[in-house]
């Protein structure tokens, strides 16, 4: 890693968008996330790193209440979006998930046409008044997800007919089509080649202008390239959280240091 570049990088970050206090997640008896306190900032890319099975996906899924769908999963503690407790009774998870979009670890396009995949979100949320509006949204989202050139001639073909990497970009296009305020991305580039990865990273950087992006990644280089803040998880604990430059150049916790230098993981 280019330490000098990291340290020099100007960090412009916004207000606190999502804040978690003493967040706990249990799968039945398994205590998967322990006492996580974290403030995710607006207009910032936050990277979650950590060894496999440490609970990155689990914590990410708490932020848009996707864990509600797992029968034996229990979330405790306080998680707020713009100061409002998202686990409060008054919060509708359906609306929350429109505001907090998600790209999953495994590409999961609908077995519908490419167009329908992207148009589905705007349609159910009533975001496009005319067909032309919808076409416009679909095109811009596919462009931003770096899929337009490959998909523009086959918008009516099923999304499941695309290659793995293309499917993942389709899922990204689908997620940004509802203009979420926060975009949660669980290893969005694990199935992508370096060129597509670079395009997605560019997209993430672009999204940062308006949104808050949380990205789970196993690639230290990627975390360093795209994020301004990094959280290191280990065995369900948030070990260290801070500016990306500081985490990679000057970690405070010995576990963080061993992980980023490749000794645990």
């Amino acid at each position: 890693m280019d330490d000098a570049r990291l340290a020099e990088r100007a960090v412009t970050t916004g207000e606190v968008k999502i804040s978690a206090r003493k967040a706990q997640v249990y799968y039945g008896e398994t205590h998967a996330i322990r006492d996580v306190d974290v403030d995710i900032l607006d207009k910032t890319v936050t990277a979650f790193i950590g060894p496999s099975g440490c609970g990155k996906s689990t914590f990410l899924r708490c932020l848009n209440r996707m864990n509600d769908t797992i029968p034996n999963c229990r979330v405790e503690g306080r998680i707020t979006l713009d100061g409002e407790d998202i686990y409060d009774r008054s919060v509708d998870p359906v609306q929350l998930r429109a505001r907090v979009g998600m790209v999953f670890q495994k590409p999961n396009p609908f077995p519908k046409s490419i167009y329908e995949n992207v148009a589905y979100g705007p349609r159910i949320h009533g975001m496009a008044r005319t067909k032309a509006d919808l076409d416009q949204i679909v095109e811009s989202c596919l462009r931003r997800a770096a899929l337009w050139n490959e998909a523009k001639d086959r918008l009516d073909e099923p999304g499941t007919g695309l290659s793995g990497g293309q499917q993942q970009r389709l899922c990204i296009a689908r997620a940004i089509a509802t203009s979420p305020e926060v975009l949660l991305m669980d290893e969005p580039c694990s199935a992508l080649d370096p060129i597509a990865t670079a395009q997605v990273e560019e997209l993430i950087d672009e999204l940062r202008a308006n949104f808050s992006v949380v990205i789970v990644t196993h690639s230290m280089q990627q975390a360093a390239r795209v994020s301004q803040r990094t959280a290191f998880f280990h065995l369900g604990n948030l070990v260290e959280y801070g500016e990306t430059g500081q985490i990679f150049t000057n970690p405070r916790d010995p576990r963080t240091e061993s992980y980023i230098t490749g000794r645990i993981g």
Binding site: T69, A98, G101, N108, P109, Y120
Partner: peptide, 27 residues
């Protein structure tokens, strides 16, 4: 019907009823 389809639809803010009638049931 793979759970990932349900997650995908829920993840972009579909209601449970929309998930069932627009995605799961047709499949």
């Amino acid at each position: 019907v793979p759970p990932s389809i349900r997650e995908a639809a829920l993840g972009i803010g579909a209601s449970r009823q929309q998930v069932v009638f627009q995605h799961v049931l047709p499949l």
